[in-house]
Design a protein around this nucleic acid. Structure first.
Lengths: 334, 334
DNA sequence: CTGAAAGCGCTTACAG
DNA sequence: CTGAAAGCGCTTACAG
């Protein structure tokens, strides 16, 4: 069966008995069209099931769509989902639509997906950089598309960034454990090669050095891939396990709990990132607000779209130590 | 400062010394252009930082973009994030881009955002219906845009759907508790007005009736809004608390744990939906695969884009009972 | 407040 | 394999 033809503005104008331009005005500057004419046009549009074609409008207007691209490396971490939710929320408040792409965490994927988003002429590009270098975006930036890095800074690219105070947060985590009397405090991280983990590790080291425990390298358990469970088990299943652990992110915290349960070793724990059941489990964390991070990044995008020529800005969002008991030496609450 | 002008295909053709059409072919059917000519064009494109304008291409080609819209009610539930991740994954494998919109769970919002997505001429619309009625999409469906409902069926609209076996899953949950010897088994749900909760409640009732416990209305604790913690506390903080609970979704499971901890009442528990720390906590659940749900929905969209005229299909994905200890009468493992 | 012409950047027929 | 003309659906100047 043949599908009915999609109506165009011309069809609407013809049915309403006005010029094409008048029909167009009903959608772009309705207040400039006489009320009676407007009603006539809208009635015709309803009858024909007309919906203005945003593509054509944008093309004619010179390229600036009302979409904003978000490029994420890995879709599996709940932290990034929350960031995306915050972004979506803020954008929709400004009448913008979110277009998402994920690079599956490969260098080649990041550039390919960025290219696809930019070909759709997104008004701005938000990204969680995961490739080693973002200089491939420099041409686009010069053409006026704002680029905003989220959670990690872009490399070799002049771009705005919204980050966390990773170093201060991790320092706080270690200090909380030191204050509770611990000395053998381990730091556990997967994806240790990325910026956030660099910073957090540095914060942990600062706290340890300040406490006169500078030579803690044996207590650092780092992996460049996603093997949280392996790292956690390796750290805890030793002759002399640490009495306390700083977990580098939410997934590592859960991995520590899992390993602790299996091994019946119960180290004190402060984890970076809050998570769903941390309160139920009595786990102390370095908390921050991923929704807020997304909101701030989107707000920055909205501002850059309006005023493209400003100097790049770096926003660092604070973290907060939430004590729930697991920082003490009495072991976990579960 | 003036921004440099964006290069068009014309500029590239001129610099490469070929016709506009030849330059176009390099991007649409590269195998039909002589290798030497192709290299010449690509070199010119690189020099000019040219990126083909997808909008213009789509407009000329007759409307079908390579984007797919996803309309979500509430962005806050991790379940939907996982569904979205599955969708994104499957779409990108087919060279499609995901455009997301959230309705903030209002009827008016759903229609407004659907309209925005359709104005961008998405090739298909995936949605988690939250309004009471989706008949407003019928015109668009007749124009050939596939609509696929995810997690809940669309109402008053002929659309494909990818759902869970909610009823069977909830029945299994109640049966697991019955098998463990429980009789006073409560059912707790927030958002009790939506389709999934209807079905799950029905499954619970079936199991109870079969066990000769048909009159369990006093054990049903339902709320139409999001007040999980309130429902959980009300259900457990009574003179005669239930000995076991079926939680209607992941958030209710966590709310039960929280309430149980505060009240030191420790009912057995089987929750619908798995969640991050359920294994650590030893919580038995009705598990299913939100990523898979997203993947299937996206695959259906891809198929419908290719062959639009097929009859709507309803896919029901199975659930799986995962026993971790909390179904027994000995109380929670934490 | 309304209208006829031109054009946004690309691709589709139609020729060669 | 390459080219000159027309047009996708809309809006922007330019007139009235």
């Amino acid at each position: 069966m043949a599908l009915p033809q999609r109506a165009t503005l011309d069809d609407v104008a013809r049915l309403a008995g006005v010029s094409r331009k008048t029909a167009s005005r009903v959608y772009s500057e309705p207040e400039k069209v006489a009320a009676a004419t407007r009603e006539q046009v809208l009635a015709a549009a309803r009858r024909l099931r007309f919906r203005p074609n945003t593509l054509a409008r944008t093309l004619r207007r010179g390229g600036a769509t009302s979409t904003v691209g978000l490029l994420i490396g890995e879709m599996s971490n709940p932290f990034y989902h929350a960031v995306a939710a915050g972004i979506e929320h803020e954008l929709s408040a400004s009448g913008l639509t979110l277009v998402m792409g994920s690079s599956d965490d490969t260098e080649e994927g990041e550039e390919r997906v960025a290219d696809a988003l930019l070909s759709q002429r997104v008004a701005a590009l938000l990204m969680i950089p995961s490739a080693a270098d973002q200089s491939y975006l420099d041409g686009e930036r010069q053409l006026g598309t704002p680029v905003i890095a989220v959670d990690r800074p872009a490399r070799n690219l002049l771009a705005d960034a919204v980050l966390l105070q990773n170093r201060a947060g991790a320092r706080q985590a270690a200090e909380a454990l030191l204050n509770a009397g611990h000395r053998r405090i381990a730091y556990l991280a997967s994806r240790a090669d990325i910026h956030t983990q660099h910073e957090r590790l540095a914060g942990y080291r600062e706290a340890m050095a300040t406490a006169g425990l500078g030579d803690a390298a044996a207590l650092e358990h780092l992996s460049d891939d996603d093997a949280e469970d392996t790292v956690a088990r390796a750290a805890l299943d030793t002759a002399e396990p640490p009495s306390a652990v700083v977990a580098g992110n939410n997934r590592m915290s859960v991995a520590v709990l899992r390993a602790a349960r299996e091994l019946e070793t119960r180290p004190a724990l402060v984890g970076f990132d809050d998570f769903d059941t941390a309160d139920v489990l009595g786990i102390s964390v370095i908390s921050h607000d991923p929704l807020e991070m997304g909101r701030r990044a989107a707000a920055l995008a909205v501002e850059r779209i309006a005023r493209p020529t400003t100097v790049p800005e770096v926003i660092e969002l604070p973290t907060r130590l939430v004590l729930r008991g697991s920082e003490s030496s009495t072991g976990l609450a579960f």
